[in-house]
Design a protein around this nucleic acid. Structure first.
Lengths: 153, 153
DNA sequence: TCTGAAAAAGAATTCGG
DNA sequence: CCGAATTCTTTTTCAGA
């Protein structure tokens, strides 16, 4: 992992479909060298995956919300996690240290669909308390960490 | 926008670097047809971008946190937004309806680096109150909405 | 480990139907 | 939208630095 690898990662974060030869010319490296490095970045799990980001507005998904959940007991965890995985409107779920047990990031169509999701959530066994915070707009939305500029290793 | 477009989107969400011919064979459509559809999805802004997701753990970014911020007055907004854009450890920023004004999603190295970021945040003019919630683990992490299976338009 | 070139394979574009 | 031909791109290989 060096400066050149970081440059490759940054180019792929800007556009995951750039060709190897385009990367090569951008960073002044030969095509085989870039190809080798890219394979190592993929095989080594440095690059987790390549994702197409779909514009939520084009699917009338206009409402973003953060929802906090507290679960009654640890034994309900497995069932809750399965529920979360099933629900496409729940994009993220983080297990928390603190007052609530989970934080969900939700993108849905409207107040009405949020209400329906909330009702599904409340009917999952063990869900005790919820708190929903609605976002009015999104100021920044990076999907991946940005590797800091490298010098070591 | 129809069922086939949704299938194309889903394949690109699984792997944004799949080739058009691979998509074509997966959905039983000719290569030129897929190529045309893909161009329309891109040009129409349905696909926002293609992103390589970098594994945070491989860069020792082990700590995820949600931070709520309240700003003193609207006039500090612009400066705050610029700050947020500059800080690579702040991945998301949403403007809120409610108690706090903004929610940030933060991925950083450790408690020490979170502390330093918190201090930078607190020294942004207008930042009045913050509340930080640390995540212990991530249960689900989708980066894009999943289009519902289509029938109309 | 990289380069450069050449060969081979594969993918995308074009276009007639 | 299909299918075939053309063109472009990518990958692989390897000798040499």
């Amino acid at each position: 992992m060096d400066t050149l690898d970081v440059k490759i990662l940054k180019l792929l974060q800007q556009n995951a479909r750039v060709t190897v030869s385009e990367i090569a010319s951008q960073i002044n490296l030969s095509v085989p060298a870039v190809s080798d490095r890219l394979k190592k970045l993929e095989a080594g799990g440095i690059i987790d995956k390549y994702v197409a980001i779909v514009n939520p507005a084009r699917f009338q998904k206009e409402l973003t919300a953060i929802m906090f959940i507290s679960l009654e007991r640890p034994k309900f965890t497995e069932q809750f996690v399965e529920f979360v995985q099933r629900e496409d409107e729940i994009l993220e779920c983080h297990y928390l240290a603190g007052d609530y047990d989970y934080a969900l990031k939700i993108i849905t169509r409207s107040a009405a669909t949020l209400e329906r999701l909330l009702n599904r959530i409340k009917s999952v066994p063990g869900v005790q308390k919820t708190r929903t915070i609605v976002a009015l707009s999104t100021v920044k939305n990076n999907h991946s960490i940005i590797p800091e500029d490298y010098s070591g290793e």
